[in-house]
């Protein structure tokens, strides 16, 4: 379904188990409505990639994902020719006595030999619906790819020299994510609707945990979330994201816990924190943080 208002967007996301702030709902709705790419930034693990999956479900369309990395080039992002098959085709034509060079060329560069990579796939509709295109972690790609992307996002077309220009019947819904290991170029940012996804509030994170970790006892969920929220206030090298909270809550549940225990926290801190220095720091403060998490005011 295609939402017709901000409220509807928010509800539809929630119906697919994604709890979005009003701000994010506005950005998503406007991106859809105005046909603009949506640029999402935020710390790792706050649900940037997740919302795209939900968006594809919500619009009941295909999700195409392009993971960016340095040196990402046309042949991995857009298209590539199937050389092995093309060579075979030349031999076959030769065997059949074909001598016309122009004809050979035409045969060999038929679209059946074209391997479509994500950006080219994104121009195709399935059942009359444009896909959702996720360009993940654009900050990892280099400036050359960014420049190409800028062109793609404004024209919705790709030119393949041997075939001609391929145009989108219907522009795809594009979501770009970035972890800010590098600044995205301003020209690209300005084409997009921009939203910074922050760490969630206690209430929101609690709702997410209850939604995503079915069967978790209410009390455990409250304490776990309060603990993570307190942990984020600490001076850590890498604060835990929502993804880590969910992993941790699931781990606690799997360990049969009904309430947070200091020993269990110490044993499972590795699920939340990914740097040894952070783990040591958190261990030293675990009891203090736990006490805060158990305070009724935190709930």
């Amino acid at each position: 379904m295609f939402p017709t208002s901000v409220e509807e967007t928010q509800q539809a996301l929630e119906a697919h188990h994604y709890i979005a702030d009003k701000g994010l709902s506005v950005a998503v709705f406007l991106a859809l409505k105005l046909g603009r790419p949506l640029l999402l930034e935020g710390e790792p693990g706050v649900g940037k990639t997740e919302i795209v999956k939900v968006l594809a479900q919500m619009l009941s369309t295909r999700l195409i994902r392009l993971q960016c990395y340095e040196g990402l080039d046309l042949s991995s992002a857009v298209y590539e020719w199937d050389y092995a098959r093309q060579m075979m085709q030349i031999r076959l034509l030769e065997a059949s006595g074909e001598r016309d060079q122009e004809k050979v060329r035409h045969e060999v560069f038929g679209t059946e030999f074209l391997l479509k990579r994500p950006l080219l796939q994104a121009l195709e509709t399935t059942n009359g619906k444009a896909p959702v295109l996720l360009i993940d972690e654009l900050d990892r790609a280099d400036e050359e790819f960014e420049a190409f992307l800028l062109e793609f996002l404004s024209d919705w077309q790709i030119s393949v020299p041997e075939v001609g220009t391929l145009r989108a019947e219907q522009p795809p819904v594009v979501v770009i994510t970035s972890n800010r290991t590098r600044e995205i170029h301003d020209a690209l940012k300005r084409r997009c609707m921009y939203y910074w996804i922050d760490y969630p509030s206690f209430d929101k994170e609690y709702r997410i945990v209850r939604e995503k970790v079915p069967g978790i006892p209410e009390k455990l969920a409250q304490q776990a979330v309060a603990f993570v929220q307190a942990l984020r206030q600490q001076d850590l090298y890498k604060a835990p994201g929502v993804a880590e909270t969910l992993d941790w809550a699931a781990s606690l549940l799997a360990l049969g816990q009904t309430e947070l225990q200091p020993e269990v926290i110490e044993e499972t801190l590795g699920v939340l924190l990914k740097y040894q220095d952070d783990v040591v720091k958190a261990k030293n403060q675990a009891r203090d943080l736990l006490a805060r998490a158990q305070m009724p005011t935190a709930l």
Binding site: V26, L30, Y195
Partner: peptide, 9 residues
Amino acid sequence: YAAQSSLVT
């Protein structure tokens, strides 16, 4: 938010 997502990058 409409203003922010359109104007701030």
